[in-house]
């Protein structure tokens, strides 16, 4: 499933943040978004995930192909690790949670309440959710926050395996993942401030 974004303009809180953005994400490929804080990476990912409509432009190939992981992991502290993961597996109609537990080395933690996990362990659980969605395009917002070095390796391994199976990934991150990924610097697409819409505007 190819994700195609054409001439996209997105806004946050009514203020345009990125404009004229176009890219294509083919199966088996990963695209890493780079850019300073506040440039609109999260907004772009939320648009692609369908949580927010773009101002203009087209997003094709999104919808039921997207597995989104944002800043929060959507983990219920009073459920155990296995219960959290099983819930998402059943929502997405995907099979067993075993491979996801293996990929992020969560097997020793299955019966622990998620509220007792460390921040990095919670993040691993949140990322393990992607594996039970069975969806081809991963849209990830800062996935490595609070992960230690070995967990980042696990994550990179999971992404590599996903790409090898014909999936694709759109990742906003500031760190080097060691992936064969294309880089997209979104800075140049920063939206110009809207021209002042009053009489004096012509003189400024």
């Amino acid at each position: 499933m190819t994700l195609t974004v054409t001439d996209l303009v997105i806004a946050r809180g009514g203020v345009p943040v990125l404009e004229g953005l176009s890219f294509t994400l083919n199966p088996g490929r990963a695209l890493v978004l780079r850019g300073p804080n506040g440039i609109g990476k999260t907004t772009l990912l939320r648009c692609v995930a369908g949580l927010q409509p773009p101002v203009s432009g087209r997003i094709e190939g999104a919808g039921d192909t997207i597995a989104y992981a944002g800043h929060s992991d959507g983990i219920k502290p009073t459920l155990t690790v296995a219960e959290n993961l099983t819930f998402w597996a059943r929502v997405f109609g995907a099979g067993s949670i075993g491979p996801a537990l293996d990929a992020y080395e969560l097997n020793d933690l299955t019966d622990r309440h998620a509220g007792n996990l460390s921040a990095g362990q919670k993040r691993r659980l949140g990322l393990a959710r992607l594996l039970v969605t069975g969806r081809p395009i991963w849209v990830l917002d800062e996935p490595t926050v609070s992960l230690d070095r070995s967990a980042v390796e696990m994550f990179a391994g999971a992404v590599r395996a996903h790409l090898a199976q014909g999936g694709s990934a759109l990742i906003a991150t500031h760190i080097e993942l060691g992936l064969e990924a294309e880089l997209l610097e979104v800075g140049p697409y920063k939206a110009r401030p809207a021209p002042l819409d009053d009489f004096d505007g012509g003189f400024l």
């Binding site: 995930a49 369908g50 949580l51 039921d64 997207i66 597995a67 989104y68 992981a69 944002g70 800043h71 929060s72 992991d73 959507g74 983990i75 219920k76 502290p77 998402w88 929502v91 997405f92 109609g93 959710r129």
Partner: peptide
């Protein structure tokens, strides 16, 4: 609660 922990975003992108 689902809003705070991000579950609502994930449910909105889920097949439900």
């Amino acid at each position: 609660l689902d809003w705070e922990d991000g579950s609502l975003d994930l449910l909105a992108t889920a097949p439900l």
